[in-house]
Write a protein that binds this DNA or RNA. Structure first.
Length: 727
DNA sequence: AGCACGCCGACT
DNA sequence: GTCGGCGTGCTC
């Protein structure tokens, strides 16, 4: 009778591995939820101890763990349970799920976390402050002033000030600031009081506050500008007052320095953050602080939902409809859905906020599983924007822009206001065509048309990154006349510059604006500017408030109306409402123009006449009739390989392994919407069931069988439970 | 995923 | 005669 450690290891095989404890040590409960270093084959890996139990095989077969890496459990029992559940639900190897939950800095044995450093003014620093030495308003000055009240944590200090890291380096070099042994000054300044809540906001806060002691999901369904964040802040204050923690999830694009600063200044407590802009060590520190209860608030993007919480009190998912909550590779979890699982396990409320809730969430609210809280009033003076449709049929167009649209932009800038032109396509033109022979530029690896980027004279594949020079003549027939068809954001920028000479045109897309900081800078500049035109992609639809923006235009709504994907219409409706929300946030009313060849399309009419909820009613009916989410449940088995045959053989074998299952329909092999990508051939099988339980029951043995298929090793395959698109 | 083992082609 | 190609199999 020897007890063994059950360990989750980052290898793509289902299940855990058993190890004996190191020589001379006992496998007792003290090992639970710690990280250990173990040998696996020729390698040494870091794993997490999920259990301690009697050996299920002959202990003589087992190897010994090398050593433990943590004195204390790193995860909470609830997190281990929830992640184990997620591994089963999403059909992903449990070791990889735990590896995904650990911050990168903790996935290796040689972890050395940056020590916490407390900084204080030196005598020279005090003197400089008194002598008003760094210029008022400069970043170094800001840091000195912050330190005047007492020593502060280094990272905390840096985040209080734009360009804080560079400023701190210079202060250190000049000997004005130094590391000290003291604790950071506490208590920090009390939170700044927020605006008085309106009746709707108060009602929402009261309703959730009355339910802080148990699991409940609230859908905070509030129009853009209705002040959802104020509701979150008021709730978090109550949770903090009760000595508990709050976890706040925001979309990838939403975790701006401003947003973070707002939470920090309003709550007056340390707010730990996790986002892609942070160094690994800092992310790990936030994660550990949350798990140890040192961080009262954890604010982060998708993966923050995988963090441990020592004293959980509330989870908030802002903009819960946002697609960035779904992980699209590896462990394909949905952070909003996993937040619900954790809130239930933790016995705490979950608040989902959105102006355009996902149809899943609306259906849950309608079925009574969630409690809907409505915020219908725009806060302050802002009034709802007016939406107008521009019928594109038989219109003369300038690079896709109609006369009414150009007229509206002209009027807007003439009034000294700003206009936003939204086009979901980067580059100059999505197609380069030979007028003489019909040749068009295609990606050799994906077989899709290449996008022309004229400014850099290159053709680029937006699916795999392939790039080549823009040809001067047709490679097939040598004809000089190549036509650039269609208009992306780059071409719109050129056209708008020609149409509105003298008005600054600013393009905001992945090509012009890489990274969070660049985006913020662009927006910050526009916040102060007078008349301007912004052209760009999705990036424009959210984020920064631009008070002087009064016109928003959607150049092409037809893509969403006739999308191959079942979520196309939902995405378009969300985009229209979100873009509309960007116009007229200040005192002036906003207008939204929507260009389409199908002004009579029923979904568009419903959206414009009845609003998002009327649209959602119709769309939900259609989904129900078609057995699609949220009424039907889906899982997608994707496969790709260098040769078509390999993919087909694998999917045929997977299909046979499935057989037939009660209440689950298997469709396919279907060609993927992108049948070739980066030199790989792709295809997929789709499982559908009206019952989540039936789908799960069928999936578990099937995935086990697929792991055992010899053909599975010849392809790259993955399973996507609850896919958000079929691409 | 790594990392081995293993059996067939062009090279010092 | 070897170096190395990637098919096959395993990892407590």
């Amino acid at each position: 009778m020897s007890r063994v450690l059950e360990i989750a290891l980052p290898v793509p095989v289902p299940g855990t591995f058993d190890y004996l404890p190191p020589e001379g040590e006992q496998a007792d409960d003290g090992w639970l939820r710690t990280r250990v270093l173990v040998p696996l084959g020729r390698r040494r890996l870091v794993g997490v101890v999920l259990g301690v139990r009697e050996a299920s095989v002959d202990p003589g077969q087992l190897r010994r763990a090398e050593r433990r890496l943590d004195d204390q459990p790193l995860l909470t029992p609830e997190l281990v349970d929830s992640l184990s559940w997620a591994a089963r639900y999403y059909q992903h190897p449990v070791g990889e799920v735990f590896a995904a939950a650990l911050p990168a800095a903790l996935r290796h044995a040689d972890t050395r976390l940056p020590a916490r450093e407390t900084l204080a003014l030196t005598d020279a620093g005090h003197a400089a402050l008194a002598a008003k030495s760094p210029r008022a308003g400069s970043a170094p000055r800001g840091l000195l002033e912050a330190l005047a009240a007492g020593p502060l944590d280094a990272e905390d200090l840096i985040e209080r000030q734009p360009r804080g890291r560079a400023a701190l380096r210079s202060l250190r070099e000049r000997g004005l600031v130094a590391s000290v042994a003291a604790e950071p000054a506490r208590p920090r300044p009390a939170g700044v009081a927020g605006p008085t809540l309106n009746a709707e906001q108060r009602q929402a806060v009261d309703t959730v506050s009355a339910a802080l002691d148990g699991f409940h999901v609230f859908l905070l369904d509030g129009v853009t500008g209705s002040g959802k964040t104020e509701v979150y802040l008021a709730l978090i204050e109550r949770v903090l007052a009760a000595g508990r923690q709050a976890l706040v999830l925001v979309p990838e694009i939403g975790l701006t320095p401003q947003a973070l600063a707002r939470y920090r200044s309003r709550l007056g407590v340390p707010v730990a953050a996790t986002h892609s802009g942070l160094a690994d060590g800092e992310r790990a520190r936030s994660w550990l602080d949350a798990g140890a209860g040192r961080a009262p608030v954890l604010l982060g993007t998708r993966s923050a939902v995988l963090a441990p919480l020592a004293r959980p009190g509330l989870i908030v998912v802002d903009e819960e409809h946002d697609a960035s909550y779904k992980q699209q590779d590896g462990f394909r979890y949905h952070a909003r859905d996993f937040a619900a699982v954790r809130a239930r396990a933790l016995g705490i409320p979950l608040v989902l906020g959105s102006a355009t809730p996902a149809l899943e969430s609306l259906a849950n609210a309608r079925a009574g599983r969630y409690t809907a809280l409505r915020l219908a009033q725009r806060a302050g003076a802002a009034s709802a924007p007016q939406v107008r449709v521009v019928d594109l049929r038989r219109q003369r167009l300038v690079e896709g822009l109609s006369a009414p649209l150009l007229g509206a932009i002209g009027d807007t800038v003439a009034r000294g206001e700003q206009a936003l032109v939204f086009r979901n396509r980067r580059g100059f033109a999505p197609l380069l065509l030979c007028h003489a022979c019909g040749w068009h530029a295609r990606c050799p690896r994906c077989e899709t048309p290449l996008t022309l980027h004229r400014a850099i004279a290159r053709l680029r594949c937006h699916h795999c990154g392939h790039a080549e020079r823009e040809p001067a003549t047709c490679p097939d027939c040598d004809e000089a006349q190549l036509l650039a068809l269609g208009a992306g954001t780059e071409r719109l920028e050129v056209a708008l510059n020609e149409q509105f000479p003298g008005t600054p045109v600013s393009r905001i897309d992945r090509d012009t604006t890489r990274g969070r900081a660049a985006r913020e800078q662009r927006f910050a500049a526009l916040e102060r500017e007078g008349p301007a035109i912004l052209v760009g992609t999705q990036m424009l639809a959210k984020g920064h408030d631009l008070p002087n923006l009064t016109l928003a235009a959607i150049v092409d709504a037809d893509g969403g109306l006739f999308s191959a994907d079942f979520r196309g219409a939902e995405r378009l409706a969300q985009l229209v409402i979100q873009v509309a929300g960007r116009a007229g946030r200040g005192a002036r009313p906003g207008t939204v123009l929507l260009q389409t060849h199908h002004p009579e399309h029923p979904l568009l009419r419903r959206l414009l006449e009845g609003g998002y909820h009327a649209f959602a009613d119709d769309e939900l009916q259609q989904r129900e009739a078609m057995g699609l989410p949220p009424f039907g449940h889906l899982a997608l088995l994707r496969a790709e390989a260098k040769s078509r045959d390999t993919v087909d053989t694998f999917l045929a074998a997977a299909r046979r392994a499935f057989g037939t299952q009660q209440g689950v329909v298997l469709r396919g092999p279907l060609p993927a919407p992108m049948p070739r990508r980066a030199g790989f051939v792709r295809a997929q099988l789709l499982l559908e069931s009206p019952q989540r339980g039936a789908l799960q029951a069928a999936l578990t043995p099937w995935i086990a069988a697929i792991h055992a298929l010899p053909d599975a090793r010849r392809v790259r395959w993955s399973i996507d439970v609850d896919p958000i698109d079929l691409a």
